[in-house]
């Protein structure tokens, strides 16, 4: 086999026990002790590098960001709590203002109602008075008219009686006619 790789492999020596001349693994590569030192060295280097990156750069930064976020969140929560309390205060104030306004409105309405009622009562009373006055006046007139009428009836009756007596040829005695008419009118 005149493959250049194979030549190199044979010259290399150390890999001869783990890798065949054609480049295939002999046995488990995991058990090749010629590679242990290399892997362990680079592993420790990698771990050291990661540890360095974490402790110097990443962890302080991420930790700070998380702490800052926690702080921001709790601040925001406190602010939200504060705002909520303010909102509740405003709500209370609003409710009390609303209640006051409602009471005030009721009071105004009641006052207005009372005033109107008083006016109405006064007007009714006035009207009642006027009606009573007019009624009394009317009744007086009626009484007067009635009295006048009765007197006229008596007078007419006396005149009629005298005329009738004269027409019958009698001599009318004023006094007896009057007395007779009066007694009949009263009796009627």
């Amino acid at each position: 086999m005149a493959d250049p790789v194979v030549v190199v492999a044979q010259e290399g020596g150390t890999i001869g026990s783990c890798v065949s001349v054609v480049g295939n693994a002999i046995g488990m590569p995991q058990l090749c002790d010629a590679w242990f030192a290399n892997q362990i060295f680079w592993l420790l280097a990698a771990l050291a590098a990661i540890y360095f990156i974490l402790t110097r750069l990443a962890l302080p930064r991420v930790g700070a960001v998380l702490a800052e976020r926690q702080g921001t969140i709790s601040n925001d929560l406190a602010a939200a709590e504060d705002l909520k309390r303010q909102a509740e205060d405003a709500e209370t104030a609003y409710q009390s203002a609303l209640a006051d306004a409602r009471a005030e409105a009721n009071r105004i309405a009641r006052d207005a109602r009372d005033a109107i009622k008083a006016d109405l009562d006064a007007a009714i009373a006035d009207a009642d008075d006027r009606i009573a006055a007019r009624t009394a006046e009317s009744e007086a007139q009626i009484a007067e008219i009635r009295a006048g009428a009765a007197e006229s009836v008596a007078q007419v009756a006396k005149d009629v009686a005298r005329e009738i007596v004269q027409a019958l040829g009698g001599q009318a005695d004023e006094g007896r006619i009057d007395a007779a008419v009066d007694s009949r009118v009263k009796g009627a």
Partner: peptide
């Protein structure tokens, strides 16, 4: 199992692997 072979990154494939 060939995928598990440790080999130098530079130079000849058959060069010895030091630590």
């Amino acid at each position: 199992l060939d995928q598990f072979i440790v080999r130098p990154l530079f130079g000849d494939a058959g060069a010895p692997v030091h630590w």
